[in-house]
Design a protein around this nucleic acid. Structure first.
Lengths: 333, 333
DNA sequence: AAAATTCACGCAACCGTTTGCGCAAACTTC
DNA sequence: GAAGTTTGCGCAAACGGTTGCGTGAATTTT
């Protein structure tokens, strides 16, 4: 037989009805033990495997969840995907992958394709320039729930899992203050990202606790490209108040910033100390690693987001929006 | 309507047959222009989208390719997956993901699940301890072609894309010889991997070209864990012939080896030079980067493997096995 | 031994789409 | 105006499995 065996074939060879075979394979009690055995034996002999596409079609369920994120080559996301995969597999779901490469248009396209593929649900971390959420809202009409993580939309009527950057930033800046730093700079990210104001809030809060005044000129923004970060550093170093420590938006930004500082003849980690947010797994091998990192628990975020999604798939009538916030935490090297 | 609109609904509202609607939506010439327009208009108004699960079922084709690889957190694989995804998307395929985490049992399970999900084909890079290929051979009966890349089985009757490590190794060792090194060590990998003997061959060939004799004790093996690499280093450093340069199996091995050397008080890149195979994107940030790397073109391997797979899906009767070998190339820092 | 249950299985519809074939109406040809 | 051709659409089967319902036979109940 060129084609895989089907229930129909088994039924014909045993002179049974398809329904009987189907039930026998599922150990349905209404099928006699004898025929049940015979069916299962033949099925094994023929290497029968149920055609999942048929089942999916019939049950209007694919046991597939789509996952849309910016870049797998970023360690944060490859860790997150492991959490997603593990949670999914434990519930017999498979994972359809799509990288937006931080391009909103591509993200939209991926979401639409996944919608047509009838994924049961979606796990999404936004592209950094996504401002329009229409393609996600369209999913509601198809009963496809979405859970966002980390890079989440600035809306209330969504499910999400995110890390509260405020707490970690507070800890980071407090740590620097305790180490004696009095002028601390910050390279923050694009304003669209929810995490950007959070970092600023944590920054301010740490100063406030020590009754220090906040100087807005010590916070500069990067678009997360190398050039953006270099420009941000330039701006920061030009400030009349010389920062002795810098909180960088993430490890990638930190690396670019460190490199720029080195080029300017600055002694990194002596004259200028860096603290960052953990993205890179290999910091132990780095030449000038940040002295401390804010851990964002990507695996846990992915895992939790998937758990939520799957529970959403269970009771479709779930109405309240899940907002899970994991506290970030400073890890001192 | 709670459920997504179907062809049947459109047909009823327009008092047409389902078949007419289907054809109208596909601009079939046998449908009159008037009705064609009316159908397409209503479809648009209802936000009709064809149910892909139904189509997949009917066409016995899912436009999905499965991809099974060890670890996404390894930069090599996350680069490869981008190549796979790009090639797949260009041909309207989606990508189902599964990580084996270098566990042969998990790999087997993933392959079976993907088989039942009726992926059209599979792209695989083996777990490092996979010795039995039965789960792949079983796919033939389901007409699911497999293309391996990078970590390929040691068999002839398969399709694969791989990097020829021999050429890169030859270049690497030759480069070291030209730099004056006369005692060169190598930390090779597990023997199951096809790339292991290739590295050894390139190593020998480089010596031969210079008419130098080969000393087998200068090649040691690591199981690619940190401990394995440290044991290998210990063995190498205990050798009476003191190596001044080491070719490491990959960047991860190189990092562990460098760290071990530093602990032993060895001046890395002065007393002992490292050359490696590129896995890490951030080598420019590393404290003691290898002086040169053998580039393995992961994106290209993934892209090419997917192209082959998709062409295989086109003409099922394709019989000869595709063996694509990309030459590795030394990149000097 | 007749009636009531239970048991073991078959029939047929259904999920949404595609596609080969058939057929009536409209049009062309002589 | 009858015969042949084209045009435009409908009918029904098929893909592989699940499931509500029906039914004859075997079994139990009284």
């Amino acid at each position: 037989m060129a084609n895989p065996p089907t229930i129909k074939e088994i039924a014909e060879k045993l002179k049974l009805a398809k329904s009987t075979v189907s039930r026998a394979l599922h150990d349905h009690p209404s099928i006699g033990l004898r025929t049940r055995m015979k069916v299962q034996e033949l099925a094994r002999a023929l290497n029968y495997e149920p055609n999942q596409t048929a089942i999916h079609f019939q049950q209007k369920k694919t046991f597939t969840i789509g996952i849309v994120l910016p870049e797998l080559s970023e360690a944060f996301f490859s860790a997150a995907i492991s959490g997603i995969e593990d949670a999914a597999n434990q519930n017999n779901y498979m994972v359809l992958l799509g990288q937006s490469h931080d391009d909103a248009a591509r993200e939209k396209k991926i979401v639409e394709i996944m919608k047509n593929h009838r994924v049961d649900g979606l796990i999404v971390s936004l592209a950094k320039n996504t401002g329009d959420y229409a393609h996600f809202e369209a999913l509601e009409k198809f009963n496809i729930p979405v859970v966002f993580f980390d890079r989440i939309p600035d809306k209330k009527d969504i499910h999400y899992v995110a890390c509260n950057m405020e707490s970690g930033t507070l800890q980071a800046v407090s740590h620097l203050l305790e180490k004696g730093h009095r002028v601390i700079g910050m390279i923050n990210g694009p304003e669209q990202l929810v995490a950007t104001p959070q970092r600023e809030a944590g920054f301010k809060q740490a100063l406030q606790k020590k009754r220090l005044k906040f100087d807005a000129s010590l916070i500069v923004n990067s678009d997360l490209t190398r050039e953006g970060t270099r420009a941000a550093m330039q701006q920061l170093l030009a400030n009349k108040r010389k920062a002795t420590a810098i909180v960088a938006f993430n490890d990638y930004v930190a690396q670019d910033a460190v490199q720029y500082a080195l080029e300017q003849g600055i002694k990194v980690n002596k004259e200028l100390t860096f603290v960052s947010y953990a993205n890179l797994p290999l910091s132990s091998y780095m030449a000038f690693p940040p002295v401390a990192s804010v851990e964002q628990y990507p695996y846990e975020q992915g895992y939790k987001a998937t758990e939520i999604l799957i529970s959403l798939l269970g009771n479709k009538n779930e109405q309240d929006f899940q907002h899970i916030i994991i506290d970030s935490r400073l890890v001192v090297r």
